[in-house]
Amino acid sequence: MVEGYIPTSLSDALTELANHPYRLVAGGTDMLVQHHNLKTLPINFKQDVMYIANLSELQGIQEEEEFITIGACEPLESILEHPATPKLLKDTILEMASPAIRHAGTLGGNIANASPAGDSLVPLYLMNAMLEIQSKDRTRRVDIKEFITGVRKIALEPNEIITKIILDKIDFTKATFRKVGPRRSDAISKLSFAGAVTIQDNLVMDFRIAFGSVNITVVRHPEIECQFITKTVQELKQNKEHIVSLYREYIRPIDDQRSNKEYRKQVSLNLLRQFIDTI
């Protein structure tokens, strides 16, 4: 039988993980769907699991001068309600799930799940989120881009746990998240988009674009973005179609039960155009 281990503290969890591999379960809102079983039967996990949602060390939101840290198992709803949470992330959480999912689901879980349709990943890529990862013997930090390596693939060692998500505090002039789903709420995205820009004295000082659900991971290309830094707003806008063309090759969506690749591609680029238009 598949075992379920319920640690009493983070150090208990890390010690146990050092000795035995477990699949980690946070809020369970996605894991339980993926390991769905017939009703009344135990969850259909394929390997032993460890339940980390209630570890107090993984809760909480701290605001520092330069950044905020979010406990990996802090429920999405609490992140939404916290005054220090960046607006872009709040907007995303509001769109990404129903209240019931927000109360149980966690940001760490959404990251580790590494779904191409994971909505929170899009703003997290945009904000250059760092993850703090702990094992019994060490603590390390990794950029979310390095952490997510493919469709549901992450660079997490079997003895590690994501403990914190660290976000820079940035005051964008404009930051937008758009989710395109099959209905207005409570649905998995067909695609999503996030854009952010900082303007000083009519000059673009920061310009960031990210797309979700249109490639194996979130599409973000700083080398494209930096071409437009220190351009004027007008120059940026004049370059709209050029920018669209630069992103075009990286938007490589698939056909599936929710949408098709033509739609995903065209609408992703439409949202980029709209974002530039409204700067």
Binding site: G4, I6, V25, G27, G28, T29, L32, V33, I43, Y51, A53, N54, E77, P99, A100, I101, H103, A104
Partner: peptide, 17 residues
């Protein structure tokens, strides 16, 4: 769960402690 709505089909009993 603690006064907030959750879907009990998506909550493992281990998380209810």
């Amino acid at each position: 769960m603690n006064h907030e709505i959750v879907n009990s089909c998506s909550v493992p009993i281990a998380n209810v402690i």
